[in-house]
């Protein structure tokens, strides 16, 4: 729980710019609770119609893989080149595949 005067805890802001699109990280805000987080994010990040949706997540709840760990973490996928269509040959003249 917040004990020092740090203007609330840190929340990450994700904005959906149009219906149907993915939510994209925009930045962060400080807030004391969920409602305030949503309102602060609206006032800080969407003053010009930037979004049709907002997600707010306490920064401390985010689980992340960083670039430092990326090499060994993503390595298993790197060797499976047969997951890409370009791995395969098709006979001359075949189209629409």
């Amino acid at each position: 729980m917040e004990t020092r005067d740090n203007q609330g805890q840190l929340w990450e802001v994700f904005i959906q710019s149009k219906p149907g699109q993915a939510f994209k990280h925009a930045g962060s805000v400080h807030a004391y609770d969920k409602n305030m987080a949503i309102e602060n994010a609206r006032d800080t990040y969407t003053r010009r119609g930037e979004g049709t949706g907002l997600w707010l997540i306490p920064s401390s709840e985010i689980v992340a893989v960083t670039e430092n760990e990326a090499e060994y973490f993503f390595e298993p996928a790197d060797v499976k080149i047969y997951r890409h269509p370009t791995f395969y040959n098709v006979p001359e003249g075949v189209t629409n595949m």
Binding site: R4, D5, N6, Q7, L10, G27, S28, V29, H30, D43, T44, Y45, R47
Partner: peptide, 23 residues
């Protein structure tokens, strides 16, 4: 002026990632 307040907030958040609190 409201924009300028917002700019301050973007920048404080960005600066906090360096390990210094807003406080």
């Amino acid at each position: 002026i409201q924009d300028e307040g917002g700019h301050g907030l973007y920048l404080y958040s960005a600066a906090e990632t360096l390990g210094v609190s807003r406080d």
